[in-house]
Amino acid sequence: MIKTEDYIKNPLKEKEVERKKAERSERFSTLLAHLGLVLLTLVWLYPIVWIILHSFREEYRDGIFVGIVVSHYIPKGFGFENFIRLFTTTLFPRWFLNTLFVATASFILSTMMTLSVAYVMSKIKFKQRKLFLNLAIILGLFPGFMSMIAIYYILKSLGLTETLFALILVYSAGSGLGFYVAKGFFDIIPNSLIESARLDGATNATIFTKIVLPISKPIIIYTALLAFTGPWMDFIFARVILGETNRQIHTVAVGLYYMVHGSQYADGNQFTMFAAGSLVVAIPIVTLFLAMQRYYIEGVTAGAVKG
């Protein structure tokens, strides 16, 4: 009896011990993983928190406001002085509205153009399709800065430089070339869906607007998100096209960049104001990104796999 019991129990016990061992090591590795993640999070948030802290920094030396970079991470005084100065002594409110305008207009145009091209390249077979695809790839490889000077003079010949409209044109005109991700998405839509609609007598236009677009919400949002946030981040093209002296029509990126860098506008004592401006710009964009996270991830993944 005992022998049999031993025979039966021992393996069980062994298994039990093994399971516990595995559980312990599992728990240990989980703990380690969490620790690692906390550490990485700290590293990734370090600069972001620094900017936030400094946008609220309010320090004085002998009654003079100190806005230059300092070596202590946590400010010695907090307040809203930077924001007050940002909105009352600089053109920041104006820049913000300019950017909002440019971003809105160019995201509507870009999204329409990108999706149109992507749909054509994916679902409509026509003679020059391959030629267009190859041309698009080749053109996309030329460094954009080089054409910047030429673009400036083309716009000028059209009488458009130094206007926000010119900036919208530049941001949207070439946007159709970035159709790959959306094309990848449309490729997945089964052709049978389109063919059956055609058998029902639908025109190509109806198929696109009534059948394809309604099921393409993720890719529409992804494209729109990127097109909308672009103008908030670009400080190179905008600077050349809007001109250095037209501060009235600058975008936030150009205005803030000039606040701390390049030329005599740059006043090191405005660094904390730059931080405050950064925060005001970052909040809507980051919120948008986080709200649309799901679609953004979908787009990134699709783009990566399709190449």
């Binding site: 030396r61 002998d62 009654g63 003079i64 406001f65 100190v66 806005g67 230059i68 970079v69 300092v70 070596s71 005599q264 006043d267 090191g268 004592n269």
Partner: peptide, 27 residues
């Protein structure tokens, strides 16, 4: 200006356009 305010360097050669920043650094 950080060099001045952290007292790493005792002087800076500059023009009038450096004044605001210098003042904020040294009070």
């Amino acid at each position: 200006s950080a060099d001045l305010s952290t007292e790493t360097s005792l002087t800076v050669i500059g023009g009038a356009w450096h004044f605001n920043e210098a003042r904020a650094s040294l009070g």
